[in-house]
């Protein structure tokens, strides 16, 4: 299930390139070691611009989630209801990811999950799987 092709900027391109390779790729500040998210030119902690790629493990916990019932665009009419989750990864990084094929069962904030991938023609995006699925 696809929503919309993301608009990718010069700053976010490395993240989306990582997604295409099925990796959670972020920037680690070479000066202070903090993992930077959202992507940016400078480290918001120490303002250094030096960074190196870091790949985080594909697992985390659900910080929170929303079940979208109203299609906010006509193309979503046959996709609702769908789940948008905010997932806390390692190193203080929080990303969005969809839980596909939600069948109305209970999710919980704090639930451990793994990250998998959904490939579209031009991009890939992270999706949520329950641990052990």
């Amino acid at each position: 299930m696809d929503f919309f092709e993301p608009r990718i900027s010069a700053d976010t391109a490395p993240f989306w390139e990582g997604c295409r390779a099925h990796e959670l790729r972020f920037q680690r500040c070479k000066h202070c070691g903090k993992v930077r998210w959202p992507a940016g030119y400078l480290c918001p902690d120490c303002l250094s611009e030096e960074s190196e790629p870091v790949v985080l493990p594909p697992e985390g916990t659900i910080y929170s989630y929303v079940v979208m019932h109203k299609p906010f665009h006509p193309s979503l009419a046959d996709k609702v209801p769908y789940v948008v989750a905010a997932v806390d990864l390692a190193e203080g990084v929080r990303i969005l990811a969809n839980l596909l094929d939600w069948d109305g069962e209970d999710l919980r904030c704090g639930m451990p999950v793994t990250i998998d991938w959904q490939d579209s023609e031009t991009y890939s995006r992270p999706i949520v799987k329950r641990k052990g699925e």
Binding site: F3, E5, S64, Y65, V66, F72, V84, L96, R125
Partner: peptide, 25 residues
């Protein structure tokens, strides 16, 4: 109909969805 950033790739549309995320937590 085109994404202005990368949130639409996850169907994360509307201010209300952002508040709903906090409310669920």
């Amino acid at each position: 109909g085109k994404a202005t950033d990368d949130l639409a790739a996850f169907g994360d549309l509307s201010t209300m969805a952002k508040y709903a995320m906090q409310a669920r937590r």
